[in-house]
Simulated assay, not measured.
Amino acid sequence: MAESPPRREPSPVRHFARITDVALAVVTAVFFVAVALATGVSGPWHATIPLALILGGLLLVRRRWPMTVLLLSIGGILVYHLTGNASPAGWIWPAAVAYFTAATTSRVRWVAAIGLAQLVYSAVDFRWVLDRNPARYVIHVAGEGLLLAVLIAAGLAYVVAMRWRERWRETDSRARAVEERLRVSHEVHDIIAHTLAVVGVQLNVAADTLEEDPAAAAAALRLAKDVRNRAMADLRSLIAVLRYHSGDTAPPPDLASLGTLVADARAAGLEVTLDEHGDPTAVPAIPAIAVYRVVQESLANTLKHAAASRAEVTIGYQPRSVTVEITDNGRADTGGTDVIQGHGLTGMRERVSALGGTLTAGPTPGGFAVRADIPVAGSTA
């Protein structure tokens, strides 16, 4: 009967499996001989010790050929009995590990049939006790049957547990993949939204000043080109990480890049002030990226929706958290609704929530405000 090849396991798992097989082989051989000597078997070197060595040695290859190991174990026990030796531990127990291993395969029905046949044969072989001690006979046969049932049930339970573990791993893998896709979508959205907002403003400036002030139009076009080039570099870096997981790609944006965001917004005609308090160097990489993206998306929304002329970015670096607040003087009645319902604010909130923080956004008496509280304690760079 052809058996499926074993699945390749990690090295520590294979090492532990080999140790387990050796331990089971030693325990099986030693216990069989010990029980034989305890029950008065004479001349153990004649048959008992050889059978113990065979039963133990077969367990060393039980994972590769489970059915073969079971059949050879039963065959050895049968020969042991046919040569006039009484088994000191019954018929089923000496092959207990072989039965359990075979029960974990797809041939569990054959295992049950083989065990039932061996159980019937042992009941017939032990019939000479029936007339002398019926209670002993019943206990012996029932005990052998119960042990067989327990071994097969344990094998089936082990298979079910392994299947559930594999399903859990697959589910966890899918969840990680979904989280990664969501993270990538946030990154792409943040890059594109900011780029389109700045480039759109500069193109409008160029179109309006092309005839009256060609120099200003050229400057606006150069700025739009620079912003576009930076966005393309960010996208290439992100795609390279996803495709190759290489270490030679550009680093992700961090707090040192906030000045570039502010400069781009100022060049687009928005009066922006950046006020930072505390030590930004103590912020780990992941929260730093979140801070950058919150500022980037908020300024992009201000340029696209709020029709604002002024924005203030305030960042407070505390030992255990970072507070980010972006306020503008734009139209809160219409622009605020667009921002709340857009994908940008949803992405910011999900990004901050993933780090255990909170994000609030809404109209204020003077415009619109976004505030994020991002914990940094326990984060890794």
Rank of each mutant, 00 (worst) to 15 (best):
G344I: 03
K225G: 04
P6A: 15
R132W: 11
A86R: 10
P253W: 05
L258S: 08
A207M: 12
G143F: 00
N204A: 15
V129T: 10
R310T: 13
R331K: 04
D131N: 11
A103I: 02
R181Q: 08
V198T: 01
V178A: 04
V262C: 01
P252A: 13
W168Y: 02
F31L: 12
R228N: 13
S309H: 14
T68Y: 10
V26L: 15
V150P: 02
V370Y: 07
A123W: 02
Y99V: 15
D190N: 08
E297H: 11
R181P: 00
S173A: 15
R243E: 15
V159I: 10
L71M: 14
Y244M: 12
Y80E: 07
V30W: 04
R243V: 13
L156I: 09
R169W: 09
P214H: 06
F32T: 05
R174H: 08
P12F: 13
V227E: 12
R331L: 11
E144I: 01
A290E: 11
D234L: 06
T101N: 06
R167N: 08
T195D: 08
H46E: 14
V272C: 06
A135M: 03
L210S: 12
T83I: 08
R243M: 13
L255F: 03
R132D: 12
D172V: 07
V283D: 02
Q318P: 00
V178W: 05
V376A: 03
G330C: 10
A112K: 08
A197R: 01
A263L: 10
V376F: 01
D333N: 06
P253I: 03
T358L: 04
G335I: 01
G367H: 09
A96H: 06
E187C: 02
H81D: 07
T195I: 00
A123T: 05
D131M: 09
H277Y: 07
A288P: 04
L116R: 05
V324F: 04
Q296G: 09
T171H: 11
